[in-house]
Nucleic acid binder design. Sequence first.
DNA 1: TGTCAGCATTGATGTGGATCAAGCCGATGG
DNA 2: CCATCGGCTTGATCCACATCAATGCTGACA
Lengths: 217, 217
Amino acid sequence: MDQLESVKYYRTFEAGQTVIWSGDRMDFVASIVTGIASLTQTMEDGRRQMVGLLLPSDFIGRPGRATAAYDVTAISDVVMCCFRRKPFEELMGRTPRIAQRLLEMTLDELDAAREWMLLLGRKTAREKIASLIAIVARRDAELRLRSTGNDLSFELPLTREAMADYLGLTLETVSRQISALKRDGVVVLEGKRRITIPDFDRLLEETGDDTDGGLLV
Amino acid sequence: MDQLESVKYYRTFEAGQTVIWSGDRMDFVASIVTGIASLTQTMEDGRRQMVGLLLPSDFIGRPGRATAAYDVTAISDVVMCCFRRKPFEELMGRTPRIAQRLLEMTLDELDAAREWMLLLGRKTAREKIASLIAIVARRDAELRLRSTGNDLSFELPLTREAMADYLGLTLETVSRQISALKRDGVVVLEGKRRITIPDFDRLLEETGDDTDGGLLV
DNA sequence: TGTCAGCATTGATGTGGATCAAGCCGATGG
DNA sequence: CCATCGGCTTGATCCACATCAATGCTGACA
């Protein structure tokens, strides 16, 4: 099926490939099927900040907007499901449920962005790293439908550089702080990517977040 | 009209007053009529980060959520227009236009949040201050329906402390950087709050933002 | 089996902004 | 007219993180 003809089609990207550049014309919206992608902004001198982390089922693009506002990059190999924008917008006009669902998702993203702003503005490097590991750990647990019990183990899907872009740090600082958490027994590393968390509550203490509120805050 | 009875009612707050605390029960949604309010998150040890700046017509609260996720504080005197949450949600279910409008607004806020993340994660103190002044200047120009010509002059609605919370800085650093911009002729101060911008493009150069893209980026 | 490339770690040093600590200014009230 | 108080400014010092610079590890490929 030709992707120029059909309303819905699939595209795949290899790890590291750019899906779209900020400012490019974008006549589709999409949703991640498998893999991880990032939304980043770049300043003229090259400073970079990740502003969104896209996981399976996350939405890409904005109805009513013809131009990409951010760089979208595949972090792992990615499969995404695309809809041509115009038909999608028409469908959205006819089907209120879609707009409502999209509103839900966008509000969740906004909450995540605000949590992220606290991290960027006020947390120390160590707290940032601990927070990121906790976030990834929770995601991982969710995806595998496990309870968030103790002794989690999972693969870090991000390079040190991607973590730095996420956290507003340099990759050297990321590396040093991970080493420090390892030294202090908060995490255990096997190789560079596989992480085990012997005591999740201990990790949470390191994040600086309110712990007693739990997931509800 | 009793506000416990009616679906729609007005409330006023004085500058500095807290509208609602994070975690409080919240059975209304609202919209700012006049004044400015802030959304902030606080860590246990008191570190604070502003995560939203609410201006006239901005929306407060989240349909389907019964608990406030952030502290809401009146920065200036504020009048807001409240709707009891349940009736509002029912109305939203019956009126697709409302959900669509809310989606629009939420997407705009998400874009603003992402711009803000770049600022928090990667900009220098000087760039942060310049960015904030540019943002407030544009807002002010919009409100007064002026073109964004040169030689703007307006009242800064935020205290140094509120600016610090917005920017992820201390109030001392905010003060120093404003003094520096003044010394360098980028801004002119009359008193502590009134700012004149002799050359808006010069200010934009200080923000670190892509200038050639203009408002579209 | 060497070597090369791409991540990651670690060390030495520098610096931007935080912290601690005095004052300053303009409004408010006795 | 002075006292006071909250917001602001400015100075001295400190430190967390950036920067610059080697070096290590692992896997791909000739």
